[in-house]
């Protein structure tokens, strides 16, 4: 195991981090949108959100990625590996995050929504300025958890041609015939990244302003 090999792994881990962070953030935005649809009370939107969420939670991510990778070109849309990976990962995490957020939105005390109503906020304003921030605050630990899961799941995007940490490790193992140290190093890098995410998450959790009373 040489420094050069390790450096190649580190470089590939940057792709892992980029894909994961982008997907988490995109997924969060989608998840908020899905929550809004689900709470809109408008039949078609509610159903769309429900079906979306059960599909992406029910079908393995690997299958989703392969579907997107093969389906879109078949209908004439050609996407790069990176775009495909980002779409797959972010839609999948959106479904899980929407499910997490459901608990958060349900946990917003009714009185806080009533005080927003009395302050003249429209339902949409109340959703944006009051309910969503509080729901996010309530489910923040679940969000950190999801970030760690996505970092690990991102290894699956190699099936659509992305070279990230796991794929790089596989390639190097095949060409150097040193699978053990290389996979051990890759594992350590994942561990280190997730350890940092967990610590940063705990710090952020402590720094966020208080939860609603009760």
């Amino acid at each position: 195991m040489t420094w050069q090999l390790f450096e190649l792994l580190l470089q590939a881990s940057l792709m892992t981090i980029f894909v994961s962070v982008t997907s988490i953030l995109l997924g969060l935005a989608f998840a908020i949108g899905l929550s809004a649809m689900r709470m809109s009370g408008l039949g078609p939107l509610v159903w769309f959100a429900r079906i979306f969420i059960s599909f992406f939670r029910g079908v393995p991510l690997l299958v989703q990625l392969l579907l997107i990778f093969n389906l879109l070109p078949a209908i004439g849309i050609s996407l790069s590996s990176l775009t495909t990976a980002l779409i797959g990962l972010s839609l999948c995490t959106a479904a899980y995050q929407a499910e997490n957020l459901r608990g958060g939105f349900e946990g917003v005390p009714r009185g806080l929504i009533e005080s927003a109503e009395m302050a003249g906020l429209s339902p949409v304003q109340s959703f944006i300025w009051i309910r969503t921030p509080i729901a996010l605050r309530l489910t923040f630990p679940a969000l950190v958890n999801e970030a760690i899961l996505i970092l690990k799941s991102s290894s699956l995007v190699s099936v659509v041609g992305m070279i990230e940490l796991t794929k790089m490790a596989q390639n190097l193992a095949a060409s150097t015939y040193m699978p053990l140290p290389i996979f051990a190093s890759a594992g350590l890098i994942y561990l280190a990244i997730n350890w940092i995410v967990a610590i940063a998450g705990r710090r952020a959790e402590a720094a966020l302003p208080g939860l609603p009373a009760k």
């Binding site: 009185g111 009533e114 005080s115 009395m118 003249g120 966020l208 302003p209």
Partner: peptide, 20 residues
Amino acid sequence: RRTRSKIGMVFQQFNLWPHM
């Protein structure tokens, strides 16, 4: 909303928004 804007309400549980 227009009629309600004449009314201010104070709740038993304060109901301040905790993130502000």
